[in-house]
Structures are given as structure tokens and as C-alpha cells.
Design a protein around this nucleic acid. Structure first.
Lengths: 342, 342
DNA sequence: ATCTGTTGTGTAATCGTTTACACATTGTGA
DNA sequence: TCACAATGTGTAAACGATTACACAACAGAT
């Protein structure tokens, strides 16, 4: 059946030139009906599969779109990837997914790998550490950012994300309404725009409640958006505060999961001893004992927007920069209660 | 910085031939020290990234390994993919992951896509419906099967999986020891070898307990290894049996999750009204209210074996077929109790 | 009868690399 | 001094497709 047949094999079997075979398979130019039928049946007889490496080289387009993201084992990013794929597949594009684990080196390697492979477009959840490179790429290659903005100017492309400020703002308000004042915030690194925005939403809600978080707010922990750092943040909290906070705000899904696991490990009951709120993208949430109130984003929606941006920009690279920002909604859980006065 | 520079640009900038540049970058053949330094610095100055499409065409190798699997949103397969990637990366290979959702058409498309893209090796969790094709591929391309054997003979390559028979055997025994007799089995489709083997393990344990499952065993449901089919299987059970079974055996992780969600939805308490056992790969299991006893496989181990098989076979395609089968261990949960006599 | 447009096919250049081969130059041992 | 190996570099042919161009045959219009 399959045996690395080339277009020449087909051509010689049919007694025609490779040009004609190419035209027949691609429905390009004129080919007589009989010849076309003959060629197509020869193709399937020989098990001919066109070599798309050669094709890509010639036409300078691979049909591949690269998606570089921080953590592909995170449900959120998996859903974004799936959405992008669903959008681009009908146009015969394929997605290659790369996971950087927020490492600058790894991101740079993947960028070079993908550029060398001649991808047709790039979707990236940047580490914010190769941003000059990304800016230069964006001038010549359709580029779409998801979740994180660049730290430098000059970017030419689009951006899709949830409304980060609103998410933490609403979550914080929900805690404040229950009477919490000392809220422990598990943050992502400040080099990421989404981490900064999420902290901003928290501060805004706190400010509205008359609580100053500008100067020396103690209940903060800078994690890195991983489950482990959520766990570590909680352990840190347990060891460092006499007056422990009464609630924890995890600023992404993985850190929220880490929080729950840490509290579970240290036998701290939720919500009796500690309230927890966080972000969506927690697997099997409905089966869990304690379900934090979550800011529910729709990663599929975000991925869809990114995918559409990509397709549009492949059509016309000179398009003006666009943005798609989606609001979250709050889904109440059972992990918030009124704090006891200690 | 980046601007689609070619080897010619570098060559003319340095006043040498492309051959010399190529030798300098690839450490191939003789190049004088000064020229090499000059060329390398010119490369980084121009932001030259070799076009690997052209390279692949010439050397007839892409450095890409394809992994076709049934469901990439399943934690199990994600881990297998990660393991393969970890093994092959040091040898400068990259993994492309494709998800078939067990569709024959989709699998065939991906096979052709990958073959056309000239991959260096193939790892596949087959749908068992393109097996003749896979056999023919395996003659010329390093091929490794994971989880499922082919339905036809003539395959040339390796196989990695967990010991399916043992997993369900042990799970079933654990239920039998608690006194369960009417065990509802959620199976995968019989066209998959792993589904057949898992049912075999169940039968073996039942036979040892003197229960005949050969003829007309009623408590079976043929699902398709998805969460939805696990859910549906439970709904089916609730509607069709006056004497409902006292325990459910989910024969993979997704169907076990579906089972738990269905029982939760229909307010059937676990384990008071129904015991549940299943497979590993359930996210956040430790945070869940009811934790089924599971047969714990190590998908990372399986993926590692598959990755190693691939590398070995890339070195020497004529290697004899090999197999790696890993035993699971049983991890007790809290979702099994002694059945009430009704 | 000539012109023009459509249809059908082949020739050969091209995409960006790698590498066999050719040719210098230099060093080394007899 | 000569032979031969080791070193350094360039020329040009691949890899497998696409496609501009050329040419032929034929139709319909003038």
C-alpha cells in the first residue's frame, strides 16, 4: 500500500509529465477529464501521498500554525488549543502545540523551531521574556497573543483574553460581602500582564471596601501559576502569620487546586476554618467535597477568538491590531463562609 | 531581528559559498576556525534561522515523531505524550500529537497528514480500523503501538501497554471480597484489544468466584471509553434493572468519572447504595468526596517505554518486535462497601 | 483565410538546503 | 624531493513538489 511513492512514479506510470499530475491532484489549470481520472486512480493504486515538505518549500507555506503556551497540562490551555484547532481545521490548517513551562530558554527554542519549520502563523501565551523577538516576528508573520500582553511596544497583531481585572474584582467582592477582611492572595509573577491585572482587580475591590492594599499589604504570595506554587503559598501562610487570613484568593485554576490540596493535607477545614475562591478550569469540580466560588471564564471562547484572528491575519497581515476580551461570571461554590471573629 | 534570512544571505555576507556556511553550522566537514567564527556571528547578526523544510527535503528526515491517540483531553494520554516527549527531546526530536476521538476517518486523515509531512516515526493508539494501512506503514517507518494491538497480523514494530487483564481482575476481586455479586461492567468497544482484555480480567475473577459470566451475563454495557458513555451506561442501568447491581466497574478513567457524575446527578449515594471501582487518571481524585478504588497504572512509564522503542527503532528499523507490559497496583478508595441484601 | 481565445500538455526553473566531487594548499614521512 | 594524507573551500546536482512559459490543437468570430 504505502511506500514513499513520488509524483514522478505517478507521472511515469501514466505516461505524462509531473506538471500534469500536479495539476490533476490540485485541481489547478487544465487537465482533460480522462487523464485526470487516470491519474487519480493511479495515485490511489500506488498509495501516493504528496510530500508536503517539498510542497511547503515551493509554495512557502506549510499549513501549520504554532501555539506556544505555558503549560499544556492545564485544562484551560488544552481547551484554548482545542478551540483554535476547531476553528482552523476547516481551512486545512494544523496546530502544533508547544509547552514552555514559562521558561525563557524553552520559549526561545520553540520560537526558532517553529520559525525554522516555516509556520504560517503564531499564537502565543508569552513568557514576556522574548518580547523583542516576538515584536520582530509579528512584523512578518501573523501573530496572536493570548492571555498575556507583551512587555514592550511595537507589536503588530491581535490579543485575546478574559477580563482579568473583573474576575478578581468580583471574587474579592464576594469574599468581602461575607465579611472577610484578611484575604490571602496567591499571585502569579508580576512580569505577566494577566497577573498584574488580576492583582489590580483585587486592589480595586479592597479599596472600595476601604481597605488599603497599596502600602505593605502583608497577605500576598507571589507564585507562578502552578499547582505547586499554590500549595507552597498556603504552607508559607501557615508558617508565617499569627493572625492567619480567613480567606484565600487563588488567581488561577492551578494555584487554586494547589490551595485546596494544601488545606486538605494540613487538615484545615473549608470553609469552617478557611474560605477559598478561585478560577475555573478545575477538573471534576462537581465531584469535589469543597467547591470554591469561581470566576468562570470560557477558554473555548477565547481560543475561538484567537483562531479567528489568526485566519483573518493570514488573509491580510496588514490588518490593524485587534482585541477580544471576555467577561467572566461568578459561579458560587460551597467554600466560603462568614469568618469567625478570633 | 528575524526576517527570513537564507543561507545565501549569510554566504554572501561572508563572501563564502553556501556549502561552507552549511558545514559551519552543522559541524560537518572541514571549516577553518576563523571562517567558522565569522559565519556563526554573521548568522546571529542576521537572525538567520535555517529553513528546516528545505533541510528535511534534502536529508529526508524531519525530526518529527507523530503520536496519534484517541483522546488528548484524557489525562492518561496527556501523560503518555509528555513521557514520549521527554524521552525524544534530548535526541532533538519533536512530537506532533493528533487526537482521533476513535474515528476511523480522522485517523486515516492524520496518518496521511503525518506521512506526507515525512515524520521519522509513528506512535499510535489505533482505532483498529485502519490496521492494514498501519501494517504497511510499519514495514518502512518505525512504528510503536500503545494501549491497543492491531486486529490483523503482519505488524512490524513494538507495543507498550499496561497489563489490562490484571487490572480488572484485581478490581473485580476487591469487589467480590466485599461480597458483591452483581457487578455492572462498563466496557469499551470490543474492537479494541484493551477492552477485550479488561473484560477478560473481569471474567477470570468472576469465574474464580464461581460466577458464570460466559453465557448471558446481563450486567454489561458497551461504552466507548468516554466520560459520556460512562454516564449513559449508568443511566441505562438505572432504567433497565429491577434488581440493580450493587457495584460498578468502570474499565477506564473517563467512564469511571462519568459513572461518578451520573450517580451524583441521580443522588445515588456512594458507597451506601452503590460501590464504584475504576482506573487511574482521574484529576484531583484526592479532593473528591468519593474516591473509587482504582487500578493504578503509570502512563508515564508506558510512554517512556514507547519513546525508547521509537528511538531504538529509528536507529535500526529491522529490530524484532518487542513488548513492554506494566502491572498496575490497586489503590483503595472509599467508594466500596458491603452490599445490603435486598 | 486569418485572428483570437480556450483548452491541454510538456519543459525547465525554482524553493533553501545538503553533500558528492573536484581542486588547492599544507603538512608529514620516506 | 616526492608521494600521500589531511585540511579547507567551491561547484553543482540533488530532494519532490509547483508553476511560468512555450507550444499545439481546436473552436468560433471576422
Amino acid at each position: 500500500m504505502w511506500g514513499k511513492t513520488t509524483i514522478k512514479d505517478v507521472a511515469s506510470k501514466c505516461g505524462v509529465s509531473t506538471a500534469t499530475v500536479s495539476r490533476a491532484i490540485n485541481n489547478n489549470g487544465y487537465v482533460s477529464k480522462e487523464l485526470k481520472d487516470m491519474i487519480l486512480s493511479a495515485c490511489s493504486e500506488l498509495g501516493y501521498i504528496p510530500n508536503s515538505t517539498a510542497r511547503s518549500l515551493k509554495i512557502n507555506s506549510t499549513g501549520i500554525i504554532g501555539y506556544i503556551t505555558s503549560d499544556i497540562s492545564n485544562q484551560y490551555h488544552i481547551t484554548v488549543a482545542k478551540a483554535i484547532e476547531d476553528i482552523i481545521r476547516p481551512s486545512n490548517y494544523n496546530l502544533i502545540v508547544c509547552s514552555t513551562r514559562n521558561s525563557r530558554i524553552s520559549e526561545e527554542q520553540y520560537l526558532k523551531l517553529l520559525l525554522g519549520r516555516n509556520i504560517d502563523a503564531l499564537v502565543i501565551n508569552t513568557t514576556c521574556e522574548n518580547d523583542d523577538f516576538i515584536v520582530s516576528i509579528s512584523q512578518k508573520l501573523p501573530t496572536v497573543l493570548v492571555n498575556r500582553r507583551l512587555s514592550v511596544s511595537g507589536f503588530h497583531g491581535d490579543f485575546a483574553d478574559g477580563n482579568n481585572v473583573l474576575g478578581t474584582y468580583l471574587l474579592t467582592k464576594s469574599l468581602l460581602e461575607h465579611g472577610h477582611r484578611n484575604i490571602y492572595v496567591l499571585e502569579g509573577s508580576y512580569k505577566f500582564s494577566n497577573a498584574r491585572e488580576r492583582y489590580e482587580g483585587f486592589r480595586k475591590a479592597m479599596a472600595e471596601a476601604g481597605i488599603d492594599t497599596e502600602t505593605d499589604y502583608p497577605y500576598r504570595y507571589e507564585g507562578d501559576f502552578t499547582e505547586k506554587s499554590g500549595f507552597d503559598g498556603v504552607v508559607h501562610m501557615l508558617h508565617h502569620f499569627d493572625h492567619a487570613p480567613t480567606a484565600i484568593l487563588g488567581t488561577n485554576n492551578a494555584m487554586t487546586i494547589g490551595t485546596l490540596k494544601a488545606l486538605h493535607t494540613y487538615h484545615i477545614s473549608v470553609p469552617e476554618q478557611m474560605s477559598v475562591v478561585g478560577f475555573n478550569g478545575i477538573d471534576n469540580l462537581e465531584l469535589m467535597t469543597t467547591r470554591p466560588t469561581i470566576a468562570n471564564y470560557n477558554p473555548y471562547e477565547i481560543g475561538t477568538a484567537a483562531g479567528q484572528f489568526v485566519l483573518d491575519r493570514i488573509d491580510d497581515l496588514s490588518l490593524e491590531n485587534r482585541e477580544a476580551i471576555f467577561d467572566p461570571v461568578i459561579i458560587p461554590g460551597n467554600a466560603t463562609s462568614t469568618p469567625r471573629i478570633i
